[in-house]
Structure formats: C-alpha cells, structure tokens
Design a binder for these strands. Sequence first.
DNA 1: CTCGGCATGTAACCGGTTACATGATTTT
DNA 2: AAAATCATGTAACCGGTTACATGCCGAG
Lengths: 204, 204
Amino acid sequence: MSLRYAVLEVLQASPMNGYRLARRFAEAQRWVWSAPQSQVYGVLAKLREDGLIAGAVREGENGLSTADYSLTPEGERHLARWISEPHSEPPTRDPFALQALGFDAVDTDSAVAVLEAHIAEQEALIEQWGEHREALLRRDTPLLRERLKARPAGEHRRIAEVKAMVFGRQVELATAKVDWARRMVDLLRDLDREAPARDESASA
Amino acid sequence: MSLRYAVLEVLQASPMNGYRLARRFAEAQRWVWSAPQSQVYGVLAKLREDGLIAGAVREGENGLSTADYSLTPEGERHLARWISEPHSEPPTRDPFALQALGFDAVDTDSAVAVLEAHIAEQEALIEQWGEHREALLRRDTPLLRERLKARPAGEHRRIAEVKAMVFGRQVELATAKVDWARRMVDLLRDLDREAPARDESASA
DNA sequence: CTCGGCATGTAACCGGTTACATGATTTT
DNA sequence: AAAATCATGTAACCGGTTACATGCCGAG
C-alpha cells in the first residue's frame, strides 16, 4: 500500500521515468522503502489510471522515447492528505526478535554468532544512513538538489532538516539495536558462567 | 515465512490446539509476531505435512475432540537450526518513516498531530511490552509457566532472562521512537518560529 | 432456544518477490 | 559483434488479510 506514496514522494521531488524510479527502489535497501523493479511499473500504471500522476512523453536525449511522470494536482492533494493523517502501525512483525526469543534454546556460541552478524548488518546500515543524513544537511544528494530547485529558497532549510531528521531516526533505531545486541551477548555469556556446562538439546 | 517459526516456538513451550494458537496470534499486536486466525490453520497444516509437528487427537475436557500439536524431533531440530543461523534483515519498509519524510510538505500542526498520535501508540506498546517483560522476570506468564514445567530448574533463569530481554528490546526501540518524535515536534516548531507564516501548498 | 465461545477450516484478494521477455541504444 | 544499459513490461508464486462457512457445546 505504501509504495504508492513512496513513489508519489519521489516523483514530487523530481519527475522521472519508470526506469529511473524502479532503479531507485530496487537499489534502496538503505532507503526507507524498497521494491523490486517489476512492482514499480505496476504501481505506476495504477497511479496513472487513478489520475494521480501524468506522464509527459518526451524524446529522451538519445532519441529514445520515455515518459516523465509527475504529480497531477489531485496527486499532490492525495499525497498531502496521506501525510497529514495518522495511520496506525502495521502489526508487529520482527523476524529478528522472533529469532532472539529462541536464544535460550540453543548454545551460547551460536546465539552470539547470530547476534554478531546482526550487529555487523546494523552497523553497515548506520553508516549508510548516517552518510545520507550528512549529505542531506549539506543539501548534496541528487534528489534533494532537484527538489530544492522547484521550491523557494525560504523553504530549503525546512526541507533539508526534516529529511535529514528522518534518516537520523533510522540511525538511532539501528544504534539501539546494536546496543541491545551487545548487552544480549553479555547476558548470554554471564548466564553461561553462572550455570556452566548446560547441555542444550543439540549437543555436539 | 517466519510465522512457521513463531508457531514452532509457541508449540515448543506448550503443545496446544489450533484454536488456542490462532487466538494467541490474532490477539497479539503487542507480541513480536501477529497473524490472523485463518493463516495459522494453514501454517499448521503445512507443518503437519512437513512432519515438523504432530497432533495427538485428544478428547477435550468437554467431550470435544481437539488435536494437541507438539514438535516432532525433526521439528525441534528444524527450529534449533533456524534460531542458530543468521538471517539477513528483510528490506527496510517503514511506513511511518515514509510519512515523516513528507512532513516538510504539510503544515506544522498536521505533522505534529501525526507525531503525537505516533507517540501515544508507541507509549501504549511500551506499557504492554514492559508489563510483559516484568511478568516474564517474575516467571508469571501462562506460556512461560508451561514451558518451565518441561525444563530442568537449572535452565529456568536463562529461559526467563532471555525472553524478558527480547521484550526489553521492544521497549527500548519504542522508547527511541518516542524520543525521536518529540524532538521532531520541537524541530518543526523551531523551524516555524524562525521562518514564520510560510504558506504550504495546502492552505486553509 | 438463542447466543457466545470452542474448534476448524475455505475463498477471494492484494502486496510483494522472482524470474523471464522484449527491444532499442550505447559501449567495448 | 557482443555485452552492458536504457526502458517497459508479463507471469507465476507466496505470505498475509478479510470475510465467510460449519458444527458442537454450555450458559442464560
């Protein structure tokens, strides 16, 4: 459902064709929303049908015909309404937490290995999101530059700070996950020291 | 995919029938995984086919026939393997972050209202998860009590502390979200004071 | 006798994933 | 000429959601 709005937000910043849009969403693990290329074209078709976007077919620089989609006035209103209304969170569904619930049932070393892989993954995300945040504050990302071009200078600061703040959130959440995982490693090690040589159901 | 393992984890703690299991997952917004009743029966059927669980048909206390499912040895191994292996995080897909990215494009009051609804929602979760965490440490939840009955006393501490720690994580993550949302409110208000009376595309 | 709770499902739908198809153009 | 990239899709599948179907039992 939300991909619609993710697409609208990107197209609002800068009109572009399906290919560029699809690439953005396909590459963007690090972004707040990701989607495979095939899904983007579907959503694009639906948004067109619903009259929320319109594609100006344009002769690309290379003679290739390509449609630059941008929001219709109705699309702008639709997006603004979605942003302005509270939407209840989707039900919790956290595979890692589910896995961690089972750490009492496996040997400590395996659990620690899983936690360390998790830490590494989150730290990579922290770096990517952090860099993106910095780039936003410098107003130095491709999409933001295109977005600012279309907006009065008085709004530039607000736009950049809000976007940067959201990536700051992602960094903070990932940092909290890393902190927790380290404490979980300590806990498992402590429990092992206090009650040593338990034999788990799966013994070597 | 993960619902399989969520089901296995619950059945490992205590064998039960589809109804009780389905109710758990349907009610459990507050849990780490939720699922509608209809899906649980489907997963249950598949786990049966795959030989990971077996249902002992039993005459219920009221003469009603009901199947108590529990893990087969293969099911135990399967679950232990899944818990012991790292699984990469699913691609980021955070509807709230997506919405927050658009806060620069709507008026501050609307954005603040959305943020306050978010804060209220997260605080409710914090309370529920926090209570559950306390209950786990007291070893006073229905499922944990049933689980501990089947395990030697020497493991009780480890089991309770690990489970509690996971709910502690959920509390910490939700707390980080609340903290961030409050700072976001401040930021929007500050930006408004510094560059007052901007008129957003949607003016009253 | 009806209503709510126990118990087990089926059916239709939708969002998201994986994989494949097609054709043009640009680069090597 | 072959490979990479631009550009736009289709098809099959799967996990998850909503809604409905069925029947038994005990309580009011």
